[in-house]
Design a protein around this nucleic acid. Structure first.
Length: 216
DNA sequence: GACCAGGCACATC
DNA sequence: GATGTGCATGGT
């Protein structure tokens, strides 16, 4: 498909999803820091289980960079137990916190004052932060124009014959970044709408008949 | 009781 | 570089 057609197609899908489903108001969270912690906790995990973990952190008054800096890994793991993979996620949160203090004196604001791509490269060097987590942090916590790709995005695009089964993260991301305006608001909604479609229609056993993307 | 969920790192070939 | 596996809880 030529560039212009691709771009038209992607805009068409977005408009269909937005008009039939409406704004998703993502990311649920009271602060950029909460969004970052949520992004790590939701790795291969249902959001319901993540919400419980975040609630537990709030109840212990631990949802704060310095508090987490001073908290040992073991009590952190116990607190986020409901999110699954709790030992490894406790490590990943601590890795991010150490990064935040090492480079930005623990300030989320200072971190996000960095330019998009240099910051993305730095985030990706943290053990436990991969492309989806990094991009979620950049877009939903930092308000930066980057397109987030996830398992739902890939599944939906494969089923609509827009990408091949072997397409990797950066190929899928480039499809959107190179064919759409770098519009933060749209990137925010677009990914959230894909998650909605993935959860409700484009499941392992898909429900294509009532799916808003039917025919696209 | 199997299967899945808003990934990632690491081992092995 | 591609493919497989461990990490773990809670909902359907």
């Amino acid at each position: 498909m030529r560039q212009k057609r691709k771009s038209k197609k992607l805009i068409q899908i977005y408009q269909k999803l937005y008009t039939s489903i409406g704004p998703r108001k993502w990311w649920p969270g009271d602060s950029p820091f909460e969004v970052i912690i949520g992004a790590i906790l939701t790795q291969n995990t249902s959001w319901k289980n993540v919400e419980k973990a975040i609630k537990a952190l709030k109840e212990k008054n631990l949802l704060d960079p310095l508090k987490l800096y001073n908290l040992k890994e073991d009590p952190l793991a116990k607190t986020i137990k409901s999110s699954g993979f709790f030992n490894i996620k406790a490590k990943r949160i601590k890795n991010f916190i150490y990064f935040l203090f090492e480079h930005y004196q623990g300030s989320i604001e200072k971190m996000f004052s960095e330019k998009l791509m240099p910051l993305r490269e730095r985030l990706l060097k943290i053990n436990g932060i991969g492309p989806e987590t990094a991009d979620s942090i950049l877009l939903y916590a930092g308000g930066k124009p980057i397109f987030v790709v996830d398992a739902y995005t890939k599944r939906i695009l494969i089923r609509h014959n827009i990408i091949s089964k072997v397409a990797n993260y950066s190929e899928i991301q480039e499809l959107f970044m190179e064919n759409l305006e770098k519009d933060i608001r749209m990137f925010n909604e677009y990914h959230a709408l894909f998650v909605y479609i993935g959860k409700h229609f484009c499941k392992r056993i898909p429900d294509c008949e009532t799916c808003p993307m039917k025919g696209l």
